[in-house]
Nucleic acid binder design. Sequence first.
DNA 1: TTCATGGTTCGACCATAGTCGAAGCATCGC
DNA 2: GCGATGCTTCGACTATGGTCGAACCATGAA
Lengths: 260, 260
Amino acid sequence: MKTGPDIAVVAALLGDPARANMVTALIGGVALTAGELAREAGVTAQTASSHLAKLAAGGLVEVRRQGRHSYYSLSGDDVARVLEGLMGLAARTGHRRTRTGPAEPALREARVCYDHLAGDLGVALLDGLVARGAVTRSEDAIRLTAAGAAFLAGFGIDMPSLSRSRRPVCRACLDWSVRRSHLAGALGAALLSQLFHLGWARRVPDSRLVAFSASGRAQFLATFGPQAASSPADPSQETPSHVPAQRPRSRHPALPRHDV
Amino acid sequence: MKTGPDIAVVAALLGDPARANMVTALIGGVALTAGELAREAGVTAQTASSHLAKLAAGGLVEVRRQGRHSYYSLSGDDVARVLEGLMGLAARTGHRRTRTGPAEPALREARVCYDHLAGDLGVALLDGLVARGAVTRSEDAIRLTAAGAAFLAGFGIDMPSLSRSRRPVCRACLDWSVRRSHLAGALGAALLSQLFHLGWARRVPDSRLVAFSASGRAQFLATFGPQAASSPADPSQETPSHVPAQRPRSRHPALPRHDV
DNA sequence: TTCATGGTTCGACCATAGTCGAAGCATCGC
DNA sequence: GCGATGCTTCGACTATGGTCGAACCATGAA
């Protein structure tokens, strides 16, 4: 009767808000330093260290010491999958991390899902690629078409390097705010970084916000948005407030993080 | 900044041993009374009531009052899927509720996962459907083929009612004991109930065990198991397994606590 | 009615564990 | 070498929440 794996210990590890914030920040597989995770969780370095030790002892994260930095990452994508499942449950039962704040509408429109675009515009991006025949979508599997590869190469994506990478080119990621899939994987990451490179959007520091400029949004919608619709942007949405502060991006030279 | 679904609250709900025991007992799919759950969790009726109130407030379980009994059940199969995922993590990291009991090997072979078949035979079922071209599997998305619909209709599944239902027909559910996917969703549920209807297997009361009769297992394997002719190798992510019972040990040599 | 049973609420106790200050180590840059 | 930075350990404080005894409520049976 009492056999089987013990859910309670691993669930208890995820049940603390600080630890939950940390592992949530780690979804996507990029390693973060202990200090970054402490800031992400809103606790001091000592507390974060304690939490990270517990997560590591519980086998949920792995640590790699490099110089005076400790890089933490999830121990596998099975962890990420469980986290997504928990997010789904939390969304269904209506549990939000904070109550709706001023940044919330902007976050729902465009935010970074670790290294790819999420939110309304992220879902629109995938929809637009499907409508243009660049990718095919069946349930949660996404495949790039030959025409899509050409289209994206024309957009400035380095397609050969994508196919060389060990990472899957296209992945579906369930958007928690829209409750539909957006594009993840190597292509999703490359597209987002190209948006930054073109200056259509930029990251708001210390936030998951992706701020589109007015012309950037227009060009984005013209390129990826609904085709026939000649109606311009939704009038109820306004451009996210721009926070021009810039953070030093040379914080950890060993594993450059994906910001900019 | 800290917006998004709050996985901490739902994970904390599952992080208490008493509550974890309760929801684990509910994976069987049948509703249990508060008293039964109290005994299952090893706590008094008062504490069980408190825990169940929290689980209900968190949206993980639902309560149905009948006379002077309160019947609790999981609020959906998404809860069961998350629980299975957590079990997988716990198994991988070596957290077990108690030492391996006598019922454990049987549970690893065939058990009920909410309303569909799990364990070695559940994974074999999905593998067999893939090998026969009845479904296609890519990453975690499973799709029914036209040939598969005909095949399953011949097996006695009421396919029209499946497609009428609002529930997804095919879903992948990560099996915690085998560490590979088995078939969930409306089709998974229909297949299990057809197995019961045909008398190939029956449920063992007060347990998640699914007991196959000797002839039932033979017919099951003949219908869904590895085909006699060498089935073409499926180059998908998950390695096809013809003898699933002896897979997990050799697959994870670094985790020695899998003591049958 | 009266009693018995199952379930919930109230109140109090107490342990677990989350938190931070301060100190201790290691590494990096100069 | 030196100081600065990043991370961890130690110790103490505190509070959240899990637990049960007892009372309370509702249902069903005699």
